[in-house]
Simulated assay, not measured.
Amino acid sequence: MTAVERGADDRTVKVTFMAPYADWQALFDPLLPGAALDTPEEFNTGWIEKIPVWGGPWKLGTADKTAQTITVVPNEAYWGTKPLLDSIVFRALDATAITEAYLNNEIDQAPGRDPDAYRRVSGAANTVIRTGGRWDETQLTVGRNGPLADERVRQAVANAIDRTALAAAQSAGLPFKVNTIGSHFFMPSQDGYRDNSGETGGFNVARAKQQLDQAGWASAADGRTRTKAGAALKLVFVVNSRGSTDLPQLIQNMLAQVGVEVELRKVPSNDFFAKYVNIGAFDLTYFRQVDNIYPSLLFPVYRSDGEQNYGKVGAPEIDKLLDRAGAETDRAKAVELLNQADVLLWKAGHSVPLFQTPQISAVRPGLANFGAFGLRGDRQYADVGWIS
Rank of each mutant, 00 (worst) to 15 (best):
M1C: 14
G7F: 09
M18V: 05
M18W: 06
A22D: 05
W24N: 12
A26C: 09
D29S: 15
K50A: 07
P52H: 11
V53P: 08
T62S: 02
A67D: 13
I70D: 04
T81Q: 14
K82V: 13
P83V: 02
P83Y: 02
L85D: 06
D94Y: 15
D108M: 14
G112R: 00
D116M: 04
T138A: 05
T138M: 01
T141F: 14
V142I: 02
G143T: 10
G143K: 02
E151K: 02
R152I: 05
Q155D: 05
Q170H: 02
P175R: 00
G202F: 12
A206P: 02
K228V: 09
G230P: 04
A231M: 14
A231K: 15
F237E: 03
S241T: 14
S244N: 03
D246G: 03
M254G: 08
V260H: 07
V262M: 06
K266R: 08
F272Q: 05
A274V: 12
K275C: 10
K275A: 12
N278G: 10
Y286R: 08
Y294V: 03
S296R: 12
L298K: 07
F299K: 00
V301S: 08
N309S: 06
G311F: 09
G326A: 01
T329H: 06
A332M: 08
N339E: 09
K347Q: 15
A348W: 01
G349E: 02
T357L: 10
Q359H: 11
I360V: 12
P365C: 11
A368Q: 15
F370P: 01
A372Y: 06
Q380F: 11
